[in-house]
């Protein structure tokens, strides 16, 4: 198809083709209408494609969540009906009550809070000074040590579970909350991300603080941390989600329920005489709700952190 390109409008006295003193718009002719229609069509197609892609993305990401919520409120026969039922006739809380009956949810939830809180606190205490040192100090072996920190991100957990289990057994740490906190407080990812943020802080700010006799601790507390707030919130959220959802380590590093967390409890909701996953889904909902709440509270900071990183 051949399209005719319309010549640009002649400049006006104001120098703008659309200035106030411009001559009246000439009547639309077929030669100028075609590109406008094509442009309009292109715009409509782009908007339509964006809507379709957005709907597909929502289906891909939100679909499983919707299915989980739906199943948690369904009866067994509704959950297993063919064709699948995409709604509930009535909201039922039976599955949640059954979930609380089957396992001691309060105990596991408390363990999850202790382990997640302990990991967050420990990480904050470890990664902030570590990232500051890697970002702002020159010392021998710095790059090698930073490489070692990065390398820890590449070691699969399955590789270390056995030696760490044996070590915990010798140290008497099995079935303690500490055993589920200690290995995760020195987060290589957190140190890396925070180091990058600290490196972006202008040297002049730090020099000015030093001139005012600020200690390194004061510099971290008064300058670095406020500027790195979005990054810290993001690392905190990633750690929160990872620790809260962690299934493998709380399972393999514990042999009793003493320190086990919620993700280990949820699969135990399955009963032998049931096939429908309704009660397990109710348990999953209880597991996911705190994450959603924290995400909603921290959303603004996360977007800010990633936007800032993107601009740089």
């Amino acid at each position: 198809m051949t399209t005719t390109i319309a010549p640009p409008a002649p400049p006006t006295a104001s120098g703008s083709p659309h200035g106030a003193a411009a001559s009246p718009v000439p009547p639309t002719t077929p030669s100028t209408a075609a590109p406008k229609i094509a442009a309009l069509l292109g715009k409509v197609v782009r908007i339509f494609a964006r809507i379709i892609v957005s709907i597909l993305l929502v289906l891909v990401f939100a679909g499983p969540f919707y299915w989980m919520v739906l199943t948690a409120f369904q009866t067994a026969s509704e959950a297993l009906s063919i064709p699948p039922q995409f709604w509930v006739d009535a909201v039922r809380w039976d599955n949640f009550i059954a979930a609380f009956d089957r396992v001691n949810f309060g105990h596991f939830a408390l363990n999850s809070v202790i382990v997640t809180g302990g990991t967050l606190l420990g990480q904050f205490l470890i990664i902030v000074p570590a990232a500051y040192a890697f970002a702002r100090f020159q010392f021998k072996g710095r790059d090698v040590l930073f490489g070692v920190v990065l390398a820890t991100m590449m070691i699969p957990g399955q590789l270390i579970f056995l030696p760490v289990f044996a070590m915990y057994a010798k140290m008497g740490l099995l079935n303690t909350h500490l055993s589920l906190i200690l290995p995760f407080i020195a987060s290589g990812f957190g140190i890396f991300l925070l180091r990058q943020t600290f490196m972006r802080v202008p040297d002049s700010l730090i020099e000015a603080a030093r001139l005012d006799h600020a200690s390194e601790f004061t510099i971290i507390r008064r300058i670095m941390l406020p500027l790195a707030k979005p990054t810290i919130v993001t690392i905190g959220l990633i750690t929160f989600i990872g620790t809260w959802n962690n299934y493998f380590f709380p399972l393999v590093w514990t042999t009793t329920d003493a320190a086990r967390t919620l993700p280990v409890a949820v699969p135990r909701l399955e009963a032998l005489d049931e096939i429908a996953p309704t009660i397990v889904m109710a348990g999953n909902m209880l597991l996911v709700v705190p994450i959603l709440i924290v995400f909603l509270l921290a959303r603004r900071h996360i977007i800010s952190a990633f936007t800032y990183t993107g601009v740089k």
């Binding site: 056995l162 915990y168 057994a169 099995l174 399972l251 042999t255 009793t256």
Partner: peptide, 26 residues
């Protein structure tokens, strides 16, 4: 006797093997 649930068969096997190494077998 105190019963402690360890997961499915494969998970339990892994934990038994780990416990054998660490001398913490049930």
């Amino acid at each position: 006797v105190t019963a402690n649930y360890q997961g499915d068969y494969v998970e339990t096997e892994q934990k038994v093997n780990a416990a054998a190494l660490a001398d913490t077998l049930p």
